[in-house]
Design a protein around this nucleic acid. Structure first.
Lengths: 204, 204, 204, 204
DNA sequence: TATGAATGAGCCTTCATTCAT
DNA sequence: CATGAATGAAGGCTCATTCAT
């Protein structure tokens, strides 16, 4: 996806990867703030110190940058989620653990999440977004699996499980719009708050 | 806001208002689908049958169109919400009633809500969005007021009321991304699902 | 191929067609002079008086402009060629007539021909050039048909007809590089010169 | 013209010259195929295996590369042509000999000739192309001299000698577009074909 | 009212070229 | 010698907006 294949010599590769990551983060912030389409490459140039043309060494196209933002968001979250599920344990605990890592992610990737949510119309359509859509779907299935196992073992009871699933997705996705790192509430407190909301309402 | 003052003769005014409303609805759909910035006036021209220049008779500028979409969304919702609160009744009932009209709105104004959510970065910033921001804030205060009164009269108990408030906002705002008019669930069922979620978890 | 469909009202349509033709001619001159790729839309803007953006009303893309130049060159030439062949008559006369209209074309479409020749590498490859390639091929077949009928009826004799065909194509295509409307030789004289060259060498 | 002065030690100089020649040949092919302006240094990098920066060791600038291509084409051809003329002999024989070496050149320098023809607009204008233009002119004068001597000694008769000269230039310059090394006709056969065409038509 | 031609600013991207390594 | 990161200037194209008709 970058304009040129990444360098292979380790020293160069490390510098390349570092700069690329910085660029992606800066872009996430800029896109979250100003919108993807309304943020120009020149804006990014100003935000990164890299000349407009130089940005293309690292990304190849503006859309690739957006894809990279989404991938940086979803890939580690999905992996951590899989570890939690693989570790086993009661569904209620899994839900709590997943919400904790998820909301930790919201805090560290606030801009990425805002971008991911607000550029939904791009993500839905074009084929180059297939991988991102699949990761999103897999995460949702991970989450639904926990609820389903809770329902199955009698530890949770839902009038309609999918409403709970969508409610959870909605509340977490909305969180970066109001949760501030220096605010009254920590990410863990919010995670527990959401978890209690779900579990208390799902008490059999 | 329109390029030319709306006509004053009643018959003309009715036609003008009708066409303007159609235009706003079509734009909401187009913006929800393709994004505000990425949808051009020519796209709207294709979607409405009105030539590019003609659109400016009704709106004055592209941004006015976006503002109108948000206003068409918020104004009636806020009014209905105020009536519910004005009617009095127990907070739990008010919450249920508000969620019903809110989700009915989600169903009838699906595109408007998607646009409203995804163009957040525009809404936050510029002064011409002040009125929209105020309406949004008033609605949130309406909602929080119900929760606060529930807390006050002992019918609801929250570890942290604001988490519940934000959770509610998040789940409802997310709903138009998945709720389909021809789907398994009706808007009322979703409203009740959300209401139960909140009330059961808030059982004293 | 234009950015917008051409207008349908006759008055507008006439103006549209006229301006489009002017644009194509100006572009042919500019491309012949400076090369297709090295002539920018801004250069064309200067050459036509039409603002850069306005050019796109008439052409849709720079490449469309190049295609239009080739089409304006080949279509009338091919039609005149077909009429000559359809009229019958001895092959020697057909050859002379064809060379006359062909070189008249060289004179009136000097720039078009230079462009057509020097942008060969574009024409060969991409699929949007199929129609142009077909016209070129049909013209060559028209010409070869005349030579073939001359060979068949014994009025011409070739060691290898295809060498003569390619020689003719070469000499005529090269002509716009040196033939000047105000030069010593008229297009007809050149046509007759070429015709004599071929016919005398092909005397049985 | 190269970015750095060529090495002076003979062994290094030989390697330098070899690589430079390879580069020029590869560039000729690439330019013939894709056009000078549309072929980027990175394209050449891919075609030669030399990194973009490295190319500049050998050429100094992209335009120098084009000039070198033309020089590699014209210098040896002009020299061979001069030898033929210097050898004396009847004009008809000189013409035949010149066409043979010329068309041998077409075969070995097919790409160079295509480039030379299609980048005409560059060659005509800028001062750095003066040497190339002079070589071209000298070759044309060489050719015209042979025709003139044929006319003078009565072995050839032309209605207008310059038409024949331009016809010859046209047909030979056009040849690389259709003559294939593995085709039905050899370069010598084409040379003889063209020669016969001229001589038979010029029979007194 | 409505049309569509026209503008001009701005955007993404490409690319020849330079230079530190 | 050679590499490839980086620059900065265009270039093609889009688009909100205006205006004569």
């Amino acid at each position: 996806m970058p304009a040129v294949p990444p360098p292979t010599r380790p020293a160069l590769r490390a510098r390349y990867d570092g700069r690329r990551a910085e660029l992606i983060d800066a872009a996430a912030k800029a896109f979250a703030d100003g919108g993807y389409k309304e943020t120009s490459i020149v804006d990014l140039s100003g935000a990164t110190g890299l000349a407009a043309g130089g940005i293309y060494h690292y990304i190849g196209s503006k859309e690739n940058l957006l894809i990279a933002i989404c991938d940086d968001l979803l890939a580690p979250l999905l992996e951590e989620g899989r570890e939690i599920v693989a570790a086993g344990g009661p569904p209620e605990q899994q839900l709590r653990d997943l919400l904790r890592v998820w909301l930790a992610h919201v805090e560290t990737h606030r801009a990425h999440m805002l971008v991911f949510a607000q550029e939904r119309h791009l993500i839905e359509r074009e084929p180059q977004w297939r991988a991102v859509r699949r990761q999103r779907k897999q995460f949702e299935e991970l989450l639904d699996g926990i609820l389903a196992r809770g329902e199955a073992d009698g530890s949770m009871a839902f009038a309609d499980r999918s409403v709970t699933l969508f409610a959870l997705l909605g509340m977490v996705n909305y969180t970066p719009t109001w949760l501030s790192p220096r605010g009254r509430l920590s990410a863990d407190e919010v995670a527990d708050g959401y978890c209690d909301l779900i579990l208390r309402s799902a008490r059999p």
